[in-house]
Each structure stands twice: as C-alpha cells, then as structure tokens.
Design a protein around this nucleic acid. Sequence first.
RNA 1: GUGGCUGUAGCUCAAGUGGCAGAGCACCUGACUGUGGAUCAGGAUGUUGUGGGUUCAAGUCCCAUCAGCCACCCCA
Length: 424
Amino acid sequence: MANKIIPSVKGTRDFYPETMAVRTWLYRQMRAASEAFGYQEYDGPFLEPIALYAAKSGEELVKEQAFVFPDRGGDLITLRPELTPTLARMVARKQGQLAFPLRWWSFGPFWRYERPQKGRAREFFQWNIDMLGVNSPEADAELAAVGAEFFRRAGLTPNEVHILVNNRRLMDSRLDALEIPPARRKAVFRLIDRREKMSAAAWETYAGEIGLSPAQLGGLKALLADERLWEQSEELVRFFAAARALGARDYLRYAPHVIRGLDYYTGTVFEARDRDGEFRAILGGGRYDNLVADVGGKPLPGVGFAMGDMVVTLVLQKYGRLPALDAPPAPILVTVFDADHLLEAYRLAAEVRREGFPVAAYPEPAKLGKQFKYAARIGARLVLVVGPDELAQQAVTVKNLRTREQTTLPRDALFQHLHAMLAT
RNA sequence: GUGGCUGUAGCUCAAGUGGCAGAGCACCUGACUGUGGAUCAGGAUGUUGUGGGUUCAAGUCCCAUCAGCCACCCCA
C-alpha cells in the first residue's frame, strides 16, 4: 500500500482536480489580460540545448539551477529554466517575416534545480509576456499595465498588490554622479537589491566591503530614500504618464531600491509585490535591449515580464480571491437500475448528452443507494433513473439532490424539465 | 550548495523519564430486496518516511538517507 507508492520527483507537484482548476483559472486570467492588449500566444520546446542559455541568462541560472542531462546520443539537453532565450531564437529565425512591434505571450512549465520552499518549486508554471521591436517608455508602461490588468481581473486591488518601478539608466547616472566606477556597478546593484533583506548595520558593513567610501554610501542612502527621484528621468516621467493614460497608475509606484537581479535589464525594471511584503516578488520584468542579437539576430529592443504560478496563488489565497472552483464533473448522473437496464440507461445518457448536457453514467450495475451516494459525492445536481416502472410508461424519474424533490415524467417532457432545473 | 524544524492509518493528531501502536473524521458493510450528504450497528486499515546502530525491549535514544516546511543563495 502506502509503502509501495513511488514518490514524486522532489520539487514537483501533483495537480489534483481542485488544484488543476486553480492553474486553469490562472491561465484564463493571464490569457484575458494578454489578449486585451493584443498579444498573441506562442510556445517553444520544453527541451533546449544548453548552448542556448550559455550565451546569456544569469550565470547561476544555467550553471547551478538548470536541469541538464545527456540524451541517448550524448548531447546535453536542458529542461528550459526560462523562456526568454527561446523567444529570442524564435524571433531571430523569422525576424524578416514578423510584424513589429511584436506582442507575444506564453504560459507553460519551467524547471530549476533549486531547493524547494514557500512559493518556489523545481517545476513551476510561468506566464511570459513581451513586446519586441520598440524602445519607448510607453511600451514599458504597456507591459506594466498588462500586469495591472491581470491583477484587476484576478480581483487583487491596488491596496493588496502593487508594481514597483525603477530605471537602471537613472540609477546608473546617479551612481556616476557619486563617482562609483562602472566596474563596481554590478556589486552596487546587488547591494541595493539587498537593502531590505539586511539590517542597516550589516548593510553598511557590506557597502564598505564592496569598496564604497562613506561619502558614496551617504549619497546612495539619500538616493534610496528619494521617492521623487523618478522625476529626474525622462523615461520614467513618460512611463508614469503613459501608465496613467492606460488606467494602470493606481497599481504603480516608484521604488528606488528595485533593481532586479538579472544582468540583461538595461532600462526600466519593475516587480509586483503584495503590499505587506509577506511574499517574494509576484512578477518581475523590465527592458532588455540586445537580447535577440545575443542569439545571432539583428539588434532588437524589448520589454517583458514573467510571473510564476506559485507566489501569485499564495497571494490570492491570502486575500481570499481564489474563486470557488468546485464545479462538479457533470451536473447529471444517470443511474443503472440493474444489469438488464444498463443499456437503457446508456441510451438515455446519450440522448441527454445530445441535448447538450454534460452527463455521467454509472459504469456498472450497483445498488441505487450506492449510486445516489456517488452522485452526491461528485456534486451532481440531478439523478436520473430508468427502471422497469419508468420503462413501462416511457418515462424517466428525475431527482433533484438539492431540493430532494423527485418526479417521474414522460420522456418527451424530460429535456424541458432538465433545462428548467439546471437554469438556476 | 549552506543552516534550522518536522516526518505515526486516506486526513488531523495521541501514545509521562524507551515497555505488546490509539482516537476523531473519512472509508467499507448492513438496518434500507427502486434512492444520497442524517441516525444506529458492525468492519478493515499501519513492517510508526527509509536504512543501519544502541538495548532484554525503540514511534520514543544515536547515525545516515529521503521528503516536506523555513531561512540563506538565486529568482518566477
């Protein structure tokens, strides 16, 4: 029994119908938000050569976190840890044939060999959405607006989640002003990224370790405290103006400490969080120029974001926004009175199906009590019975499990009755 | 990859300082030889995550391992 069940692979999840319904529902909201802005769905292979990721991505993502294994021919295969390189290749291959600005979105599984924990598994689903071929703050704002649209459709309000925005070029120019050399830029970005995770003292010590002078540290702290820093960036000024016009401004907020981990972001970056800061980022994205050139295409600017299925589900649970997803497999169950009436029951089930109702038929003769109990278990609303009495009068018995009312009616009146009973 | 907590029937959990493994819910059967979620009466269930070790004796102690959770790392 239990000791014989082969365990699932670490960090993977079994999607029972209830959780599968959540995944499907998320997919539907993502689709709705994407298509509302004119984005087309696409997908790539789940298996990719490791070389695709060697070109870019964060080094750790490929070296430490990707599932890599040799296929039977000896080639190294990767279970895709992210979609962006695949997107870059797909675009590079047909660059001359595609209409830009290109708006594409996707939802599918990804794999990363990490230690599972809250909001993070080794196999997860992710929504990716990108616009390629333009380099405008307005395009950036549109992507943020798509994210906001998703939250709105999912029932998450600006009081519960927000999208924090910053711009790397802005931060670069400010760091220039502090005379922090480009060589140290990466370390300083990491420092900024970790501000809220460390104590103030530890953070300042860390700043000293990466070579910041007290004056530079002071300047940096002033930067990170300046909520109006964005007003000095023409890109961000236009970004917020466009977001306002798009009706997404209430979800957006400038946040000087948001910098994002991935190296390839070049301009505006953003991430969504629950406002209590309880969970990790719900989505993350930004402008990444030169991506397509990295895989051999012509240079092409782009902006996009990714949202995993796990954190957003936690947030939706926290705020009680997951809809009741307990739809029964079928609202109608046809019982099998006994072995002699099995085919009669099946003929009835087929007729009702042809009328357009989803119908489950009991798959073998069994006591009616057992079949009624089963009907109640699966959440069926109506139970149909054709036994000897009904057959003799060309009738069907219909029991409404909610009201417990039962009537026997002629077959030609059945459909009308079913429509009426299931209408509410 | 580093550190911490946890692991007992399908589920939630019990089993003073080591002494023959239990309850509730759920499940199955029957009362109800044409009817459900109610009631009542019965019933089945675990090599206590796995593998070693200490002991006369281990769910209970020790070691290892696996899994889950949490933090770090990284990020969705």
